Simulated scan of single mutants.
Amino acid sequence: MTPTMDQRCPCGSQLTLDKCCGRHHHGEPAPTPEALMRSRYAAFVLGLNDYLLATWHPTTRPVELAPDPETEWKSLSIVGAKPPLDNTGYVHFNACFYGRGRAQKGWHVLAEVSRFVKEQQRWWYIDGTPTLTRLKPRRNDPCLCGSGRKLKVCCGE
């Protein structure tokens, strides 16, 4: 996906991409663990794997991160973000997605408590404790993308 800076940010902030996560994608350090987590979610949505690797702490970063065209990220909700303590921060979030592959076909929610550390005047993603739950929304349920429309007329087409 090629992002345009005047589109709404995928992180759900209601701001445009250039005023929200796009500025972090272009080099401005994220000021908090929550801002970094939101920008990383937006990077997953937009397929910005270089940004994901660049914000991953070198001690836990994978060598490469393959694109995942089978996953369509739909929405992000922050469950809780603890104020950083001793240069360590935690963010608990839920991210809904639709999987198009055989192994994960259908709707899911990824819940994770992510751990971040501040070093060299910037926040880094260290790791997280994820859980994956399969969802079974009905056609008349609200869409999982957060649009407020029914699933059947939004992402469930």
Results as ranks from 00 to 15, higher is better:
3 P>Y: 01
4 T>P: 10
7 Q>I: 07
8 R>K: 15
9 C>Q: 12
10 P>N: 10
10 P>G: 06
11 C>W: 01
15 L>D: 11
17 L>Q: 04
18 D>W: 03
18 D>N: 10
19 K>R: 14
24 H>K: 01
25 H>D: 00
26 H>M: 12
28 E>A: 13
29 P>C: 12
34 E>R: 05
35 A>D: 08
36 L>N: 08
37 M>P: 01
41 Y>A: 10
41 Y>F: 15
42 A>F: 05
43 A>E: 04
43 A>F: 00
44 F>R: 04
44 F>A: 06
45 V>Y: 09
45 V>L: 01
51 Y>Q: 02
51 Y>N: 02
51 Y>L: 08
51 Y>V: 03
59 T>H: 11
62 P>I: 01
62 P>D: 05
63 V>R: 13
65 L>R: 07
66 A>N: 14
66 A>W: 08
68 D>E: 15
68 D>P: 04
70 E>N: 08
71 T>V: 07
73 W>F: 02
74 K>Q: 14
76 L>N: 00
77 S>F: 14
77 S>E: 13
78 I>Q: 03
79 V>I: 11
84 P>S: 09
84 P>R: 09
88 T>D: 08
89 G>S: 01
89 G>Y: 01
94 N>Q: 15
94 N>A: 14
97 F>N: 05
99 G>N: 02
101 G>Y: 09
105 K>W: 10
105 K>G: 06
106 G>H: 10
109 V>H: 06
111 A>V: 13
113 V>S: 07
114 S>A: 06
116 F>R: 03
116 F>P: 06
116 F>L: 09
120 Q>R: 14
122 R>Y: 11
122 R>N: 12
124 W>G: 00
124 W>L: 04
132 L>K: 14
133 T>Q: 07
134 R>I: 07
138 R>G: 15
139 R>Y: 05
139 R>V: 09
140 N>P: 00
142 P>E: 00
142 P>G: 11
142 P>I: 07
147 S>C: 07
148 G>S: 02
148 G>F: 00
149 R>H: 13
150 K>F: 10
152 K>W: 06
153 V>P: 13
155 C>I: 10
155 C>W: 05
156 G>K: 14
156 G>I: 12
157 E>I: 14
